[in-house]
Amino acid sequence: MEIIQIVGLGFIVTLLILIIRSQRPEIAVQLSLTLATIIFLLVLAKLDVVLNLFRELAEKASVSQTYLNTILKIIGIAYITEFGAQVCRDAGEGAVAAKIEFAGKILVMVMAVPIIALVLDTIVKLIP
């Protein structure tokens, strides 16, 4: 079913990339970028279902939406950063990939700061 389709597609496109990489390396990079995008779009629909389930569970457990939204944002940022960094590394640009990852880490840290502050406040309140 799904995974066989994806793996088959991956093999075919990898072989195509091998053919093209010797002549036109820039087209090969675009081909691998396209394959990565298509595979992720295929999987994204299923991920959406799982995330909606998490939201419903959070509402039932009366957990406030801010926590879940922040976590989802951090996951999203982490994924896009990893996607970009990996494509740049494949194209041979290690330095660019490192800069993208560095920016991603900073953005995730910025997202996490409010939650850390909240946790520290609750801890301080617990201490009599």
């Binding site: 087209i27 396209t34 995008t37 779009l41 959406d48 995330l51 944002k73």
Partner: peptide
């Protein structure tokens, strides 16, 4: 010319990917 054509298709697909990711992760 060929490179530009391929770049056009790839950029459209990337735009679609990023809008979908924004929708899913509420980014």
């Amino acid at each position: 010319a060929g490179f530009a054509i391929v770049l056009l298709w790839v950029v459209q697909l990337l735009g679609q990917l990023f809008t979908t990711v924004q929708g899913v992760f509420k980014l």
